[in-house]
Design a protein around this nucleic acid. Structure first.
Lengths: 179, 179
DNA sequence: AACCTATATGCACATAATTGCATAATAAAA
DNA sequence: TTTTATTATGCAATTATGTGCATATAGGTT
C-alpha cells in the first residue's frame, strides 16, 4: 500500500500532474519504489476519492489537459502516520537466484548469458546513481531533505556495487563448474 | 509467475507434499523466492490442473492425509523452457528507503529505530546463511546441483553483509544530520 | 487446565501489480 | 513521407500476493 504514500511524499515537494509523477517514478523515487504510469494514475484517482490530494485541471490545446494534484492537510497527516508505522522487509523474489538454485534443471550456457545481462544492468544502475550523486550532491551545501535523499542514494550505490561484485564472483564460480 | 517454476524446481529434487513445500519456502528456496503456505497450496492446485504435477493421497490417521506431488514430464519441460527465458530484474520496493527519501516528512527518531530494526534483521539473515554454508557446504565434496545452491547462497551472504554495512553507514549519516 | 507447536490441508476476500489497449496532437528524425 | 518520441490521460482484464479464517489431532510446556 505504500505506493499511495510514495506519491504523497512526492507531492509534499511540489504539486504535480500524473505525468510528472510517472516520470518521477521512472527516476528518483523509482530507485526505491517502482511503479508504472498506469499504477500512478489509478492510485491518484483513489487519493482524490479519499481527499488526500486536490486536483485541478489546466487547459491546454493540442493535447490532453494537465491535471495538477496538490497534497491536502489530510494527505500530510497520512504521510506522518505512515512514517510512524514499522517498515516491512522487502520481499525477495529473484528468478536468477532461483535458476542458480536449480542448476541441474537449467541450461547452463543460457544462465551464463543471463548472469552477464544482469551484471550489465547493475553496472548501468551504478553508473547512473554515481552520476546523480556527483551532479546533485557532491561538494554542495545540502538541506535536510536533500541529505535524506543522499542517504538513500548512498545505500543504492552500495547495493549496486555489491551486486556487481557478487555477480562477477558468481560468474567465475559457474565457470569453474564446467572445468 | 515464477512461483510455479520454483515449486516445480523443488519437485525435481523429490516428490513432496504441500506441507513439505511450504517448509522449503520458509527456508532454502525461500531465501530467493518468498511464498506463504496458502500461495503454495493454491499454486499446486493450478499445477495439477495443468498436469504439470501428479498428486496422490497417502492415508493417515489422526491428521489430514498427506498429498504427495510428483513432477510430470510436461512439468519438466516447463522448467526447461523457463530456464531459457530472460530473467526479470527483481522489482525494488523498500519502504525504508522511501522514508529516507522523504526525510523532511518523517519522524526522525522513529526512523532511527526502524533502521536499527532493519539492521538486526539483516544481521540475523547473515548469521543464518553463514550457518547453513558452514554446515552443508564448507569442506564438503559437492555435486553440481549443490554447487549451484552454494553460488546462490554466496550471493545471499554477500548481499546481507553489504546491507549490514550500508545500514550502519546510513545510521551514522542520519545521526550526523541532527548535530 | 490452558496454551503452544507440529502436522496437514485449503477457501474466501481483499489488495496490488502487470499487460494490453485506447486516445490525440506536435515536432523531430530517418 | 513515414515513423518515432514526447506530452497527457486513463480503462479493462488478468495475474499475483497477502490476510484472515477454518478444520483436526497429538504431544509437550507452563
Amino acid at each position: 500500500m505504500a505506493l499511495a504514500e510514495a506519491i504523497l511524499v512526492c507531492l509534499t515537494d511540489r504539486p504535480m500532474s500524473g505525468y510528472d509523477l510517472a516520470k518521477t517514478f521512472d527516476a528518483s523515487i523509482g530507485f526505491f519504489w517502482r511503479a508504472s504510469h498506469q499504477q500512478v494514475y489509478r492510485e491518484l484517482a483513489r487519493l482524490r476519492d479519499k481527499d488526500l490530494v486536490e486536483s485541478r485541471e489546466i487547459e491546454q490545446s493540442g493535447r490532453p489537459n494537465r491535471i495538477i494534484h496538490t497534497i491536502t492537510k489530510a494527505g500530510e497527516d497520512v504521510v506522518h502516520a505512515w512514517s510512524l508505522k514499522p517498515c516491512r522487509m522487502p520481499s525477495v523474489k529473484d528468478e536468477l537466484l532461483v535458476k542458480l538454485y536449480a542448476l541441474d534443471n537449467v541450461d547452463i550456457p543460457v544462465l551464463h548469458e543471463q548472469l552477464d545481462i544482469r551484471l550489465d544492468q547493475h553496472r548501468a544502475k551504478l553508473t547512473a546513481y554515481l552520476r546523480i550523486k556527483e551532479k546533485f550532491y557532491d561538494g554542495k551545501k545540502l538541506t535536510r531533505a536533500q541529505k535524506g535523499k543522499l542517504i538513500a542514494l548512498t545505500m543504492g550505490i552500495s547495493n549496486e556495487r555489491e551486486m556487481v561484485g557478487a555477480l562477477g564472483k558468481a560468474i567465475t564460480m559457474l565457470g569453474e563448474i564446467n572445468e
